[in-house]
């Protein structure tokens, strides 16, 4: 009961633009250095200190950016879907702002996952692009992100743009699950088992630890980028309100 009460209070407080702005004001000076440091620790550890993979050699070190980027892109899309649902049901303004703030970095992470996957593919498969199930799913994911961004850009009214993008992301999230499943089926139809980029599920701790740290770092950077963009959007939307006028 206590947990539920705390959660609903947070929801309502963070749903208020003014409270959100103040909250992020306090949070950001701490959050962005921590995010940068965590990413740096994870990546340097992975690049310089983790042992070599006995099958793929040093090219496997791309994993420390590839997997966090792919995970971040997926997480961002799901977050957009959740925000879209919240906006559809309760018409929460903050949810619209969040969707617009998440989309750009989500698309960047999807692009990074694709680019690093392609570069990794060259020494591993001998070619930059293979229609591998994961790369193909990520490509569709990038298209979905670009669709959301194109829709936001096309609609002049910011509230309407946010709500439309929210509905599209809800539909997209349902779709992503089916896309993933269909692409896996499609690959089994057209070719046998291929060499996978990321090998078996068992990864030694010396590799897993830096991977998890860089993953956390990228997620934190994502959060910082979302907060910065959300603040800009909030200020602009609320530019005629009293609290913004007080602020400037």
């Amino acid at each position: 009961m206590m947990v539920w009460k705390t959660l609903t209070r947070w929801y309502h407080q963070l749903g208020s633009p003014r409270y959100f702005y103040r909250f992020s004001e306090v949070l950001l000076p701490w959050l962005w250095p921590i995010a940068l440091l965590t990413t740096a620790v994870g990546l340097v550890w992975g690049l310089a200190f983790a042992p070599e993979d006995y099958q793929q050699g040093n090219s496997y070190r791309i994993i420390f950016i590839h997997v966090p980027a792919a995970g971040g892109a997926l997480l961002g899309y799901v977050a957009m879907g959740v925000a879209g649902l919240v906006n559809l049901v309760w018409r929460m303004k903050m949810a619209e702002v969040m969707i617009k703030a998440i989309a750009p970095f989500g698309a960047v992470l999807a692009a990074i996952a694709l680019i690093t996957g392609a570069i990794w593919g060259k020494p591993t498969w001998g070619t930059y692009w293979v229609w591998d199930a994961r790369l193909t799913s990520m490509l569709i994911m990038l298209f979905l992100y670009l669709g959301v961004m194109a829709l936001i850009n096309a609609i002049p009214d910011p509230r309407q743009a946010g709500r439309a993008a929210g509905l599209l992301s809800v539909v997209g999230v349902i779709n992503v699950v089916i896309v993933k499943y269909s692409v896996e089926w499609w690959q089994s139809l057209h070719q046998g088992s291929t060499i996978k980029l990321t090998g078996g599920s068992t990864m030694p701790a010396e590799m897993l630890t830096p991977l998890l740290i860089s993953m956390l770092g990228i997620y934190l950077l994502f959060a910082v980028s979302v907060l910065w963009r959300a603040r800009a959007e909030l200020l602009w939307r609320e530019r005629k309100s009293a609290w913004v006028k007080e602020l400037v």
């Binding site: 569709i140 298209f143 979905l144 670009l146 669709g147 194109a150 829709l151 599209l168 539909v171 997209g172 779709n175 089916i178 896309v179 499943y181 269909s182 692409v183």
Partner: peptide, 10 residues
């Protein structure tokens, strides 16, 4: 088409 084509994949 940008919005809908990715949704048509399955």
């Amino acid at each position: 088409s940008l919005l809908v084509l990715p949704l048509y994949v399955p």
